[in-house]
Write a protein that binds this DNA or RNA. Structure first.
Lengths: 341, 341
DNA sequence: CTGTTAGCGCCTTCAT
DNA sequence: ATGAAGGCGCTAACAG
């Protein structure tokens, strides 16, 4: 079977600009212009070319396009986890911000491993992204240097408690912990317990704890009991650690590392017939949907995960060039009183 | 300031293979080989080159590399949503499967919009991915044609109730619904209620419903009451629709479109003082972690979302070429008795 | 073991 | 409004 330039597209036969140009009997530049909606083209020519595009099933090769134009329209994203719902929520915000742009997100998961993050960032930078979004301020020295030298826009998401490489978008977790402390002290609680999960991977939970401690300390109080899960946060872990906590010195309020853990606390109390908040008050962090649907709305602090993703995109889409000054964008937080504390 | 080839890397100055080669006084091919760990290279040369690589902070340009080798090592993924936790779980499986490979995932979210999916698939194919993973069998004609003609490996994830383009990885939702029906009939339930969410976007929930209906029909039974939420599934929606359902004809068991909805049902019962399963039995779908942590473990069907992602990768990584025969990989499901039904 | 020569598919600049 | 030429940064043969 001879190959002719008019042949219908077979699977595996790569159709290039050249094929389209030959079939439409115009130059490659013309096809290129039409595909990019750039420059002036006669309507008749456009139709002729588009007919060829459709007939051949031509799909432009962005790899070649990017190389030629030195312009990738890729966006690198590194999050530590997908099992903690907050990160998918951030990704949703990113996704929303990217709608109507022609950027593509290259997403990687570091599993809270800084060395892995380094490898991921290296791999992403090799694709010449326009910007790269990472999570938090904890990076290896090499990662920091790569990001810095790459010259691309860099957003560090989730927190603003340290100095960013370029832009930071998030909230102050230290202040949130402090606010939780002030709020609970104001409501009359004095004997504080803390239920948490692995801090080595979740440094922001630690920052909230520090803020809480400071508020208590300023009021002459302290956390009288701790129950810490070894692994990541989960409803099950929260439930289990709550039982542990209740076996210790009496506390009148338990502050949780996040809502997942706190919901576990609620479940533990339901199961044990412990009245909330009378016998034990419960306070979470994040403001997840489930907390609001509980028989008793969970007292917590709302963070804006979606907004973080969205603002991150807004911050870097307008200008390709990294500005001289570093920026921190505060997406804030808000105490949700609920009825469990 | 004159530019010399020995200058330290400035931000924004693109370092290329050529710069490294010049500095190390070898040819570009040699540097290329070293960067790709390919072919034989004298140890002395390698060190000399690596010294230059480090000194210049060279990061290979994969866009150029891919164009030259016609080989992208990109993997396209399209999921309908990130707010439903099952999709992040699938992504985790994909991520796990991709570890130790040098593939990068380009992830897009279609928001259950088939036209948007089409645009996303087109955008992804332009990056010449090695494979593309989409969700389910619902695609526009154009999407199907693009995927088919592209020649790349295609995985349709989540369900295996229809014929795949190339590979399907998932479970039979129809059978799962049927199994739920048989199970509940076996436990003596006769008056069935259904609590669901928007079917137009979640066709798999509809398949489960159909399977359930069939099981009931075969037993001379039927669903006597429906409560359907307008939007997507959520704990809040499940809670609200459960209240609706209870106001209707008495049912002794409520089957939910998924666990989120079912947890809402549990909360509604807790709040209203309805005893589960005596006054109302509750049955979900998915087997989420939270269901197990509830005061009463939720009766449900476990699906293997993580496994779906992982198997999807395993199915396509070995062979680049699309095989002649289409494959369906069944990741199965399992009834978890729990204590709520 | 290393260098040379051609592209990969497209975009950009400059002509016409 | 369209075309021709050159090159983006790298890899794939092939020499040597």
């Amino acid at each position: 079977m001879a190959r002719t330039k008019l042949r219908l597209p077979d699977r595996k036969v790569k159709i290039t600009l050249r094929d389209v140009a030959l079939r439409a009997d115009v130059s490659e530049s013309t096809v290129s212009r039409i595909m990019r909606n750039e420059g002036l083209v006669a309507e008749a020519t456009r139709e002729k070319v588009m007919e060829s595009v459709r007939a051949l099933g031509y799909v432009p090769n962005r790899i070649a396009g990017s190389l030629a134009s030195l312009d990738s329209y890729l966006l690198g994203v590194v999050v530590p986890s997908l099992s903690n719902i907050v990160f998918p929520e951030v990704l949703q915000g990113i996704n929303a911000g990217l709608r109507d742009s022609n950027y593509q997100a290259v997403i990687s998961v570091s599993d809270y491993d800084m060395d892995r993050e380094e490898a991921l960032v290296r791999g992403i930078l090799a694709w010449q992204p326009k910007a790269i979004l990472v999570t938090g301020f904890d990076h290896t020295l090499a990662t920091r240097r790569m990001l810095d030298q790459s010259g691309v826009r860099v957003v560090e998401m989730m927190e603003i408690d340290s100095a960013p490489i370029d832009v930071a978008v998030g909230m102050s977790h230290r202040k949130a912990g402090y606010a939780a402390g002030r709020h609970l002290i104001g409501r009359g609680y004095r004997r504080f317990g803390y239920v948490g999960h692995d801090w080595t991977s979740d440094r922001r939970a630690r920052l909230r704890y520090d803020g809480l401690s400071q508020a208590l300390s300023e009021a002459g109080l302290s956390i009288v009991a701790h129950a810490m899960a070894d692994g990541p946060s989960s409803v099950g872990a929260g439930k289990q650690q709550t039982s542990q906590l209740r076996a210790m010195a009496g506390v009148d309020v338990a502050v949780y590392s996040n809502d997942d853990m706190a919901v576990g606390g609620i479940f533990a109390c339901l199961e044990a017939g412990v009245s909330v908040p009378d016998q034990l008050a419960i306070f979470g962090f994040n403001g997840l949907e489930i907390g609001r649907a509980l028989p008793q709305p969970l007292s917590t602090i709302r963070s804006n995960r979606f907004l973080i993703g969205q603002k991150a995109i807004e911050a870097i889409l307008p200008s390709q060039d990294r500005p001289a000054t570093k920026t921190a964008i505060d997406t804030g937080f808000e105490i949700f009183a609920g009825t469990t504390a």
